[in-house]
Design a protein around this nucleic acid. Sequence first.
DNA 1: ATCGGCTCGCGCAA
DNA 2: TGCGCGAAGCCGAT
Length: 460
Amino acid sequence: MDFQTVQKSRIQVLNDAESGKGRYVLYWMQQSQRADYNHALEYAIQQANRLGQGVLVAFGLMDDYPEANLRHYTFMLEGLKETRETLARRRIKMVIQKGAPAEVALKVGRNASVIICDCGYLRHQKAWREEVATRAGCRVVQVESDVIVPLRVVSDKAEYAARTIRPKIHKHLADYLVDFKPATVKESSLHLTANCMDIDNIDTLLKKMKIDRSVMRVSNFFKGGSSRARQMFKTFLHRRFERYVDNRNQPQTDDISHMSPYLHFGQISPLYLALQINDVDSRLQAAKDSFLEELIVRRELAMNFVNYAPHYDSYKCLPNWARLTLAEHRQDPREYVYTRRQLENAQTHDEYWNAAMREMRHTGFMHNYMRMYWGKKILEWSKTPEHAYRTTLAINNKYFLDGRDPNSYTGVAWVYGIHDRAWFERPIFGKIRYMAASGLERKCDIKGYVRKVDDLVDKA
DNA sequence: ATCGGCTCGCGCAA
DNA sequence: TGCGCGAAGCCGAT
């Protein structure tokens, strides 16, 4: 059967400039920080082969990426180092330069025939692409490689809930959940000369960078890089996937994939993960369906949210019924009110919540089920819902390796009613869905979770 | 252990 | 226009 590795709907020309007059094809890598299952890279190779040129890859490294700190930079650089080495084995040169991504793309792309870029949906990522498209002397083409079904194919508006986007995604899955055949690189780019930062020694590089060092790096469990991601996913499939349906909401277990940090930095492809799941024996069909629902429907609902909701990082993004009901309960007395510092230091009266906060601080990760509880309680323990929302988002982005992800903005907003519905009215929350410690006790071994976090923190 | 009520609004059927 | 039903629930009645 004939199929295209890079479907036409993944490709979007961003300007009217001509292509073909330069010496190489530039792949400006920013979101999809990997050498495998990367549609943007693949398309760049195809274009380069057509022109008889090589592909040069460029990445712009900033000291002041919004809300990034030592923890995030360490993980990202571990991944970039491996990606650079993997590309070199394919005879593709990757240069990493200090500077704003758009500036680096324009500088390294000065002699390019065409600039290919990948696709993040946060405000600043869109602005970078806009700037490159406007100022570049050659054609700029964007290739979607971070979702299974391109956003515009699914919907042209902010979807109301998972149930409205689900059929729109499923309708197209057969066209996009297809195997990926990498093209052969015909012309090497290794001989091209371009400045590149030395990233072989990450510790040395990190010491030189003027970055926020307020958050420590994480233990080796979450080590950055595509090969580490694939290795962890393989372990998940072989040892834990058979328990995934039963245990995915059981935070005392580790029967989850732990892929979110790798997906956030584009170190692993969602298409690769989905294809791996497809290959699993159909006796585990329930687990397969459940995992693909998370990986595709809910993840791409988050992409849809940040792409189409202009205020995705503000309280204003909430639906009217949610803001209304929270406003009606603004004056309700709060039994507990904690400062941001008390929250960050895990100094509340609730040992389950404190355990979740400690998991986040020490590992850069939190079990999915606890993320919801964690967020709901900050709403309950803050002076106002607006203040709670801002605090939650700030702590989320500070400590999580996958902070500042579309899933972060969607997850935090979900706590306040987005993509959800009204429930029984109660103090503070109004009609926003409530979660209680008693629910954790009823549904899972929450004491076991606290013990698990104690062990993790001891080891860290 | 299990069930129904609580509550909003989208999207589809009619 | 009516109706079913939903991103992770709670609570009280049985």
